[in-house]
Every structure is written in C-alpha cells, then in structure tokens.
C-alpha cells in the first residue's frame, strides 16, 4: 500500500488567503494574510491567524488594488514585517495541506516571498478550490453534455452562491480564507472525495 492516500478528514488543511498590493508576485507586496485550519473536517475559528503585513522596502501598494482590499500604506506601516509573518505561515502549513482559492496567485506570492527571505518553501500538498470547481464542472458536463455553454465563473463569491453558500464580504483575508474553507467542504461533498489524492 505504498501509494495509499490518507482519508480526507484525517488531514489538517490550512486555508489561506492573502491580499496583495498588485498582481505581480515579483514586484508587488503581500499586505494582509489570513488563515485558519480545517481539522477532522471542521473549520476552527479559534485557531484563526489574521495579520496585516508591512510591505518590504521598495514595494508599493498599487492604487488599482486598493479598490479591492481597502488598505493604504498608512494602515500597514506599523504591521509586522514579512519575515515574521512567513515564520507563522511556515509553522502552520507544515502540519498538513495548504488550501487556497486559485494557487496561481496566493502560492506564487508565497513561494517568491519565502525565497526572497531565505526560507525554504515547505512544499505542502496544495488543494485548490478553483481546480475542484473545474473538476466538478467536467463531471457535470460528462454526465450532461447537452448543457454546453461557457464554464461557470470560478470567482469565489460567484462559486459560493452557485453552490448555495451564504454571501460573505469579499477581500478581507481571513473572511476569504473562511469562505474558501467552506467552499472546500462543500466541493469535497459534491465530488464524493474520500482521500486527499482525490482532492
């Protein structure tokens, strides 16, 4: 049983979301981060970690990003510096899997940041709710090919609404992490996934 994969709910997932000062992992800063764990299949608010992040020297918050996260430079100036925050992230994600909505952004930013600050990326298994959404969509098309049309939006709020989850405010890192965690539990059920590998 060398290739056996653990039962899905025996794994701890750290759901994580970051707010960034732009969309370029090479140049833009991480300015807020929220994460909380799913243990035994249940989301635990008591272990939530939520922090603003002081942008590194020379990295600016792009004006067009402010519309989403509502954070300006003054608000993050006194926040903990990135290396401190990365240590917190590192300690947590080593516990199990990392859960994000769209790893193209969040994981790319984190990897770059880890590398910049001389930290080895712990390479946790990554579960991406966007991928799970696409997987669910493929299955539905397979079973109902006549439905056709464009694939539905993978936007977090739109996907949640489609699956019957409540509307939460967007672009607060911890709330988005909670929203992602709930979406994950919902998708896990819809996909009938029983092991980590099936996710």
């Amino acid at each position: 049983m060398f290739f056996s994969s653990p039962a899905w709910d025996s794994v701890t997932y750290w759901s994580l979301d970051i707010e960034t000062g732009g969309l370029d992992p090479k140049r833009d800063p991480i300015i807020a981060l929220g994460m909380l764990p799913i243990r035994q299949g249940v989301i635990r608010l008591s272990e939530a970690y939520r922090t603003l992040v002081r942008p590194e020297e020379g990295r600016e918050i792009r004006p067009e990003s402010v519309q989403a996260h509502q954070l300006v430079r003054e608000e993050v100036r006194e926040a903990p510096p990135l290396p401190e925050v990365l240590a917190e992230v590192d300690r947590r994600v080593r516990e199990g899997a990392l859960l994000v909505h769209h790893q193209g952004i969040d994981v790319a930013f984190l990897k770059r940041a880890f590398a910049r600050h001389g930290r080895r990326w712990p390479s946790p298994p990554v579960v991406d709710t966007v991928e799970l959404l696409l997987k669910l969509e493929r299955r539905r098309r397979f079973s109902a090919p006549e439905a056709g049309g464009d694939g539905p939006s993978v936007n977090l709020a739109a996907a949640r609404r489609r699956l019957g989850l409540p509307d939460y405010q967007e672009h607060d890192a911890l709330t988005d992490a909670i929203a992602t965690a709930e979406l994950f539990l919902c998708l896990r059920g819809a996909l009938r996934a029983t092991t980590l590998r099936q996710l």
Binding site: V42, R44, S46, P166, I178, L185
Partner: peptide
C-alpha cells in the same frame, strides 16, 4: 472565539437515538 464551522451533505446523520450525544450547539446557517 470558539466557533467552528461544519458542512454536512444532505442525507448525513449527525446523531442517532441512544448513540453518542452531540458535543456542540449547532446554529443552522444554510
């Protein structure tokens, strides 16, 4: 501060008569 969030697909049995009682107060969100 102690809040937990659970998601249970339709058909799940959360507790049965005479079995282990529930260990939480549940508030239905959806």
């Amino acid at each position: 501060g102690s809040l937990e969030i659970g998601y249970y697909p339709a058909g799940s049995i959360l507790v049965r008569v005479g079995a282990e009682p529930l260990q939480h107060l549940y508030v239905i969100r959806k």
